[in-house]
Design a binder for these strands. Structure first.
Length: 316
DNA sequence: TGTATTTGACCTAC
DNA sequence: GTAGGTCAAATACA
C-alpha cells in the first residue's frame, strides 16, 4: 500500500490538472481553436493518469502484473486457428474483463480521434443491438492494446454505450496533431505515446499510404457533414439491427472541421468535440473514481455520462 | 491491389 | 450449457 502512495499523488496531480483544463475548455469550446489544444492537453494528462493508476494497481496486485488485455503478436501472423497441436495459444490471452482499465461511458458520438479497427460483432443477450468490437489499428505495428466495445443503447438509439479497455500507447500518424503544445509548462509534461487528437483540417501529412489515401476521401465525406461512423439499419430479417463500422483516423480532422463549420453544418456541431472529451473524461474520470478523485468530481461536461466503471482488478 | 469490414466458427469464462 | 469475446477466411471497397 505504501507503494501506491507516490502514484496516487501523481494521479491526484494529473486529475486536478485535467479538471482545470476542462474548466478552461468549457469557456473556450464555443468558438476558439484553442479548444483543440486544450483537448490535446487533457487527453495526455488523462492518459498519464490512467497509466499511473494502472501501475499502482499492478503494484498492489503483485504477481498479477500483466495489465494488458491482449497478448501482442498472438494473432499477427495469421495461420489457421484450428491449430494443431493442442495447446491453444489464445487460452492464456483470452480473458473476460481483464485486469486492465475498463471504463464504460454513454455518449452520443463515438468518434474519438483514434483509429479503430473492427474485429467482431456479436448479438448480446437481452439487448436489442449488437455489440461491436474494436481494437486499435496499431495493435500490431505499435503494440497498442487499446480496445473498445460499442453498443447502441436500447433506450436511447442516439446514444452508444462505449467500453474502453486499456489505454492507447500508440502514436497514430494520422491523428498526431500539428498543434503545437506551447502552453507554458504543460507541454513539457506531456510525453510521447499519449493520446493526440488532430484539430488540423488536413492532418494527412502522413507517410503511411493506406491512411492518407483513405483519409482524404473520408475527410471529404466528413466535410459534407457525414460522420465517420456508419450506421446501417438492417431491418427485415431481424438478424442484425445495425452495424457499427468504419471508424477511421480521419475522424480527428472531422472534429476539427465540425468545429469550424459548426455554425454552417447541420450535423453534430460542438457535440463532436465534447464527445471526444466524453470518452476521454469518461476514461479518466471513471477510472480515477476509485481513487477518490473528488467528492463531486464532475467535469461539468454535461454530455458525459459515466455509465459505470470496473477496476482492472475487479474480480471476475 | 491493398486494406478494412463482415461474419461464422471457435474458445473460454461463467 | 450458454453467452461473450476473438479469430481469420471471405468479401467489399477505395
Amino acid at each position: 500500500m505504501a507503494a501506491a502512495a507516490a502514484p496516487y499523488e501523481q494521479v491526484m496531480q494529473d486529475m486536478r490538472k485535467g479538471r482545470e483544463l476542462a474548466a478552461r475548455l468549457q469557456g473556450l469550446l464555443r468558438d476558439s481553436p484553442e479548444a483543440g489544444r486544450l483537448v490535446d492537453q487533457i487527453l495526455n494528462a488523462m492518459s498519464r493518469t490512467i497509466e499511473t493508476a494502472k501501475a499502482a494497481a499492478a503494484a498492489e496486485e503483485g504477481s498479477e502484473g500483466q495489465s494488458e488485455v491482449t497478448c501482442a503478436g498472438s494473432a499477427g501472423g495469421g495461420g489457421k486457428r484450428k491449430a494443431a497441436g493442442g495447446g491453444d495459444k489464445r487460452s492464456t490471452c483470452r480473458r473476460r474483463a481483464q485486469n486492465s482499465s475498463t471504463v464504460t461511458v454513454t455518449i452520443k458520438d463515438i468518434e474519438d480521434g483514434h483509429a479503430w479497427r473492427k474485429y467482431g460483432q456479436k448479438e448480446i443477450q437481452n439487448s436489442k443491438h449488437p455489440k461491436a468490437y474494436f481494437r486499435c489499428t496499431h495493435k500490431y505495428d505499435q503494440q497498442c492494446a487499446a480496445q473498445r466495445q460499442v453498443q447502441r443503447c436500447d433506450d436511447d438509439p442516439d446514444a452508444f454505450r462505449v467500453t474502453y479497455i486499456g489505454v492507447h500507447t500508440c502514436r497514430d500518424p494520422a491523428s498526431v496533431a500539428p498543434v503545437v503544445l506551447h502552453s507554458a509548462g504543460i507541454a513539457d509534461e506531456l510525453h510521447a505515446g499519449s493520446h493526440l487528437i488532430s484539430f488540423a483540417p488536413n492532418a494527412s501529412a502522413t507517410t503511411s499510404g493506406n491512411t492518407s489515401q483513405q483519409t482524404d476521401q473520408k475527410d471529404a465525406a466528413l466535410l459534407a457533414g457525414l460522420r465517420p461512423l456508419k450506421l446501417e439499419a438492417v431491418g427485415g430479417s431481424g438478424e442484425q439491427e445495425e452495424v457499427l463500422s468504419s471508424l477511421t483516423p480521419a475522424g480527428s480532422s472531422a472534429v476539427a472541421e465540425a468545429m469550424r463549420n459548426a455554425a454552417a453544418t447541420p450535423g453534430p456541431d460542438q457535440g463532436d468535440v465534447t464527445s471526444g472529451l466524453q470518452h476521454c473524461y469518461g476514461d479518466g474520470f471513471a477510472d480515477m473514481a476509485p481513487f477518490n478523485y473528488d467528492d463531486d468530481g464532475t467535469f461539468d461536461l454535461d454530455d458525459l455520462v459515466v455509465f459505470g466503471f470496473d477496476q482492472g482488478q475487479a474480480d471476475y
